[in-house]
Nucleic acid binder design. Structure first.
Lengths: 377, 377
DNA sequence: TTGATTTGTTTATTGGTTGAATTATTTGGA
DNA sequence: TCCAAATAATTCAACCAATAAACAAATCAA
């Protein structure tokens, strides 16, 4: 008798789950609309009845997640619709980032607008993890105060870190910061004013990939590659970040390109990082592009990804890198002749990770409004 | 608690969806149980009330998916329980496989038992795709007749093919069969007796990976590598097969190991296939193991997979390959020191793909019994 | 034999969606 | 000017499925 693992329901579903799901469905429909949809329009595009949509929208308005606006430009006869949009006065997300040479915090409202932005630019390496996080907590407090002055309530925070993060938010290793097993959420929660703030921690490339997902062209499956001193990647499959078994996916920097090549600080030979890190791009862009092409071809062959986004230090060098990368992709991707691989530069600048972090908080609200509504009412 | 981004509910949920979900939950609970659980036991392990479980079980028994058995060995006081199990007389799955040197068909019942098995062993390359599929259709008819004689109704079929398959079941390319754009389901449905049989087609390594998932130790995230003349892989993430954007994932055979190495038939240099194909393993197992280790380390670095299963021609060579592969994994996987990577041989033999195919059909039934129940009542 | 205990079923209640009817608000034409 | 057509949104009875609690059934143990 085979032991079975399954992909699906591990939990029972009751009527309240139906409501929770449909609340999310309505809110997402509004969030993904270019214009301001009416209740009737939402009904048509979701398949829910107008009666149900009305009831759900009432809850979402009462909870401060949606607002009614003036009708969109008229079309013909009939009662004019009330346009619905995410509330700019609703709960906001706090995005935090800690990196080798700066700390950053920003507040993003439900509509995705960056409302406040604070940066402290100096080297973190002399500081202890506690020191860095206390200072970051100060920035966070400032950001929350600024948001409060606007009438915005910060619903949660996400922190981007250049390192391996466990699912419980412990930073296992952050080589460039010299961190080892740092409980970042606990340290942040010690800062006055942040005591009860829910904080999630994630890898910088992962959050930047999420930022790119929200800012991008709607492609739900892509690889985001962040070239800094190290090289990391965020893997987005079907609109969802793939974190791996222990949350350590995307370590493309240590994919082998030349099996007997340069010794890497990780102890292996010929890692991508040794040929396509920030400094190597400056020194020999052709070799960097070749190495990137070899490693990216492996990703495409394995995952059948059709879009690759180059971010971090790669974005400004995109034009120089592109031809070399594409040449190797064409040569080494088995299905290149059947369907092309699209290569593009990231659209968000250096704020990608911080904005992705804030975006993750508000995306969480949009994906599960029921929990938020129940907690506030 | 990693935020899931845009796990978009794109469809509305109504009461009937609740029932569909909970029917699946109950059926899966029975399927995953080592013993024969009672209604009360299911209630306890799912969180549904006993009343609800009773109602759901009644439906599943009426639909022929579950059967009641004598109670399991008594424990103490109280009314004895009625043991529930998947019905061996319920709907069955037909597994089909087409490969270079054989055709195969098997019938697997709901409990996972292989009830019938037919193999025709001869070279397919002289035949046209239509010829091969007509002959395979003959095997399939035989299998269905044998099943019918047992009182088994075949609910659907899955076909394993060594090639790239689109999501609609078209075989885009199968190099070793010399197939190009073959509409396998349509050709199979032309065989008398198979006219209305729903047929899905998938890559051989993908289906073998699913077979291994059902037969394995319960690990939900692993890479299955199938070494034949070519090398393919099936990627199972969180108990679900990852097929990629166009269904072409897992082409590990064309991951670059030596950027300037041997020319591959795909036109690139240094593909894994040139060093670790069936013949190369026989010729130089050490080099094959080294090459495999380099390529597999890339997979682990990218996907944070902790289990790798070697199947196909690798399984019998496992002992010879293991040390070399593990040496490279240890050296090249960034997180090797934090958590080890497990390497094991496949448990299913050469039938893996065919059994995985049949298993996929019955898994579909178990994951969505409501559709089956509605279609038969 | 009787009470304790556990399994499974019955029944009233509750939550949530549906569908049809109703109300509200506009445009366009007689 | 006024009414019909059209579209948006709400109200309300009906229905479906899960829940909780009471009840019936079947066994063990003293």
């Amino acid at each position: 008798m085979p032991a079975r693992i399954m992909n699906a329901p591990r939990t029972p579903v009751r009527q309240s789950s139906v409501r929770a799901h449909n609340l999310a469905l309505v809110l997402q429909t509004v969030a993904n609309s270019a214009d301001r949809p009416s209740r009737a329009g939402i009904s048509a595009s979701t398949g829910l009845t107008r009666a149900t949509v009305s009831a759900l929208v009432d809850d979402l308005i009462a909870g401060g997640l949606l607002t009614e606006h003036d009708p969109a430009p008229r079309t013909g006869a009939g009662r004019p619709a009330a346009g619905l949009a995410l509330s700019a006065a609703g709960p906001a997300g706090l995005g935090l980032e800690i990196n080798v040479d700066y700390l950053a915090a920003c507040v993003v409202d439900l509509t995705g607008e960056v409302r406040h932005r604070f940066i402290a630019r100096h080297d973190q390496r002399p500081l202890s993890p506690g020191g860095s996080l206390t200072e970051l907590g100060g920035l966070a407090s400032q950001a929350i105060s600024a948001a409060t002055a606007d009438g915005l309530a910060v619903a949660g925070a996400a922190l981007a870190v250049p390192g391996l993060v466990t699912s419980s938010g412990i930073v296992r290793v952050a080589p460039n910061l010299d961190w080892l097993d740092v409980d970042a959420p606990a340290l942040l929660n010690q800062v006055p004013g942040l005591a009860d703030l829910p904080v999630v921690v994630d890898n910088e490339a992962n959050l930047a990939a999420l930022g790119e997902l929200r800012a991008g062209d709607g492609e739900p499956t892509f690889l985001y590659v962040s070239g800094e001193i190290g090289i990391g990647a965020g893997i987005v499959l079907d609109g969802e970040l793939y974190r791996g078994r222990r949350g350590w996916s995307g370590e493309i920097g240590h994919v082998t390109v030349f099996p007997d090549g340069r010794l890497c600080r990780c102890g292996a030979n010929g890692c991508l990082e040794q040929y396509a890190g920030q400094e190597q791009v400056a020194a020999d862009a052709d070799l960097a592009a070749f190495a990137l092409g070899v490693a990216l071809a492996a990703v495409v062959n394995l995952l059948d990804i059709s879009v690759i986004v180059l971010g971090g230090a790669y974005a400004p060098e995109f034009a120089r890198l592109r031809p070399g990368i594409e040449a190797e992709l064409t040569r080494r991707v088995l299905t290149a002749s059947l369907a092309p691989v699209t290569l593009r530069a990231a659209t968000l600048g250096p704020d990608a990770a911080m904005r992705g972090a804030a975006g993750a908080v508000i995306q969480q609200l949009i994906d599960d409004p029921a929990t938020f509504l129940n907690s506030t009412s």
